[in-house]
């Protein structure tokens, strides 16, 4: 099985504040990994480091075979990142937004329509401005924007946030589906009950480092 994330003794700082303080983790293709831990434990920083958005200041960090210390941008074309923010343009219509994301990924509108349908965004909403959507609908559109780019590595920070119970179940089934197709999913969540039954592996973080790893050999 190929290694997707290979971090060894990774240290990262934001300004002068250490956010990762010696992270050792190896994640294989097809794994569905839950990052757990209290606020400020380093979950978001680890996800952003995997995406190459948080620079690594020490240690060895490889994602999808690319050395992040040499080129942080290289693996991004294969990564889908859902952060705390939804990365949506408020003044675009839903359809225009997803078309833009599909065009950026070099895909067609039919792919965009499929991804909107997959997250359960009713086609009546496709002509609505993004600003008119509810918080949950915006989260669904953000998830659809990830689906449309067909990533090999999914990095999801609180993917269930703002979603209703049906939306949460849909999110879980999407994560299971992409992992079963060989993609790797790493997600941070505070919803232990919903997430632990879904994840194939649970990693717990505290003070910028891993404290428990259910998949550690």
């Amino acid at each position: 099985m190929s290694i997707v994330v290979d971090f060894r003794d990774v240290v990262a700082v934001a300004g002068s504040f250490p956010v990762l303080t010696g992270v050792d983790v190896r994640i294989d293709a097809g794994e569905l990994v839950l990052l757990s831990g209290a606020n400020g434990a380093g979950k978001t920083s680890l996800l952003r480091a995997c995406a190459g958005l948080q620079p690594v200041s020490a240690g060895s960090a490889e994602v999808l075979g690319y050395d992040l210390r040499v080129d942080r941008r290289a693996p991004r074309r294969y990564i889908g990142l859902l952060g705390h923010e939804n990365c949506l343009y408020r003044d675009l219509r839903v359809r225009e937004h997803i078309e833009f994301r599909a065009s950026v990924a070099g895909l067609k509108m039919s792919d965009a329509s499929d991804s909107l349908a997959r997250v359960g965004l009713d086609d009546r909403l496709w002509s609505a401005p993004v600003a008119a959507l509810s918080a949950g609908q915006r989260r669904k559109l953000a998830i659809a924007s990830i689906i449309v780019s067909r990533p090999r590595l999914w990095l999801l920070d609180e993917p269930h946030a703002a979603l209703d119970s049906e939306g949460r179940l849909t999110m879980n089934s999407i994560m299971e589906e992409v992992a079963s197709l060989g993609a790797t999913v790493v997600f941070a969540s505070h919803d232990k009950e919903l997430s632990e039954q879904l994840a194939s592996r649970v990693i717990t973080m505290s003070n910028g480092r891993l404290t428990e790893d259910s998949g550690a050999s």
Binding site: A51, L53, R73, R76, R77, I79, G80, L81, G83, H84, E85, N86, C87, L88, Y89, R90, R101, V104, A105, G106, S145
Partner: peptide, 14 residues
């Protein structure tokens, strides 16, 4: 800057 769109631009293939 709104809603983290800079991150989406950084993560894009563009």
């Amino acid at each position: 800057s709104e809603d983290g769109n800079f991150d989406a631009l950084r993560m894009s293939n563009i």
